[in-house]
């Protein structure tokens, strides 16, 4: 929709051209959320797409995803075969409530900075233990883990004027086996619970990220493969009934039920599949 209070658009070509932050400014990734709601408090848009960030960069250390990488680019990524968990990139794109046409515009960074519990790029980043590179207006950088970046529904660690530059996924995590499970009130609707589990193929360790059903992503780590009872007990101890998110996309009790159920499905797929 039209944002009628916007007076200026800045399109910086380099970090040094990003204007000093002032109230009424908003950084635009894809703009797909920004332009979907009235924003009467905004006066200026700073377009990040003109900074020309390389969308995806593969290195021995892992995968660097620019904040301005679109979901379409992420979905089409061609990653090394020794990264079996890479299928999660496309899997999580499909969990966006928006269509593939939105993928052409929406960015990974925008999804993270929106910080909705159901944000699928948040789920992806949580499941793959990403760290976020933040650019401060004074020219300094900092890195925070995804679990520290998202602090609550529509809340994150960004300070005024700070920009999410990229996220980094370690190669060691991409080398794990991974499974995703998702629950939604409608077949391809917004996620009510989205869980990603990974299994370290060397150590056998199990790491589970719980997202969408809780206000902010949670991680459960098991140095050794848990059995069903252990997993369930950890989840029930780790998330009390009132710890589940309550909005129109699913009743908390059902989110809790589905979280525990899908966690076991993931565990089963990653570990019991071997035994069968």
């Amino acid at each position: 929709m039209d944002l009628n209070t916007i007076e200026h658009v800045q399109q910086p070509g380099a970090r040094g051209e990003i204007p000093p932050f002032s109230p009424g400014d908003a950084f635009v990734g894809g703009g797909t959320w920004l332009f979907s709601e009235p924003q009467p408090h905004l006066r200026r848009l700073v377009d990040l797409s003109t900074l020309g960030w390389e969308p995806l960069r593969v290195s021995p250390e892992g995968l660097e995803i620019a904040a301005t990488c679109t979901l379409a680019e992420l979905n089409a990524a061609n990653l090394p075969a020794e990264w079996p968990a890479a299928h999660l990139l496309a899997d999580c794109c499909r969990c966006l409530m928006g269509s593939f046409k939105v993928w052409n515009m929406a960015t990974v960074g925008g999804n993270l900075c929106m910080s909705l519990p159901a944000g699928p790029m948040i789920s992806l980043s949580a499941g793959l233990e990403a760290t976020c590179l933040l650019w401060a207006p004074d020219g300094t950088d900092r890195r925070v883990s995804l679990f520290d970046f998202i602090t609550g529904p529509r809340q994150n660690a960004l300070r005024p004027g700070e920009i999410l530059r990229s996220i980094h996924i370690p190669a060691a995590v991409l080398a794990r086996s991974a499974e995703m499970r998702r629950a939604s009130l409608t077949r391809h609707g917004r996620s009510a619970a989205l869980l990603i589990g990974t299994r370290d193929r060397t150590s056998g360790a199990f790491t589970l990220a719980v997202t969408a059903s809780v206000p902010r992503p949670l991680q459960f780590h098991f140095p050794e493969a848990p059995d069903a009872q252990t997993l369930r007990a950890r989840l029930e101890a780790g998330i009390p009934p009132e710890g589940f998110y309550d909005d129109i996309h699913g009743a908390p009790a059902w989110r809790r039920h589905m979280t525990v159920r899908m966690a076991e499905e993931i565990r089963n797929a990653l570990y019991e599949g071997d035994r069968a």
Partner: peptide, 12 residues
């Protein structure tokens, strides 16, 4: 590329 023009910033 198909896009939803209602959320596509016109300046782009």
């Amino acid at each position: 590329e198909p896009v939803h023009s209602c959320i596509f910033p016109a300046f782009r």
